[in-house]
């Protein structure tokens, strides 16, 4: 019998059936378990939402409330986004060499060859 150890990444959860998520549900999580949600927080107006972590919730409304309680109780944010983790698609770590390393020797893509006048300040 061939034993297939499969790792799951966010990307695996895009299409439930083909990704085997139903097998996963029946074997590794209880039926009553709530889905996982990813939480993004905007720390103040004008800044981007940043990933803060994840939590369990039954639906989007509860995810926002839970995120409020778990992640913003020390004034961390002014706005929240939640998205169910299975909807986030990730790049495959195995492809990292092809995906990211070609950029390593292309320093000319960084805008570091310009002199910025002092008056501009931090940029």
């Amino acid at each position: 019998m061939k034993i297939n150890i499969q790792k799951y990444f966010y990307g695996d959860f895009g299409v439930e059936d083909s990704a085997g998520i139903n097998d996963l549900k029946s074997t590794t999580t209880k039926e009553t378990a709530w889905p996982l949600w990813e939480i993004f927080i905007r720390s103040k107006q004008g800044l981007d939402h940043k990933h803060a972590g994840s939590l369990h919730a039954a639906d989007a409304a509860m995810a926002i409330e839970n995120a409020r309680d778990v992640y913003t109780r020390r004034q961390e944010g002014v706005s929240l986004w939640v998205v169910e983790s299975k909807h986030i698609h990730a790049s495959n770590p195995d492809d990292a060499a092809a995906m990211y390393e070609p950029a390593n020797d292309k320093v000319y893509r960084h805008p570091t060859f310009y002199d910025i006048p002092d008056e501009v300040g931090h940029m």
Partner: peptide, 11 residues
């Protein structure tokens, strides 16, 4: 009943 709700009621 679950970590997140434990935090909520404690909050």
């Amino acid at each position: 009943p679950i970590l997140e709700q434990d935090i909520a009621i404690t909050n």
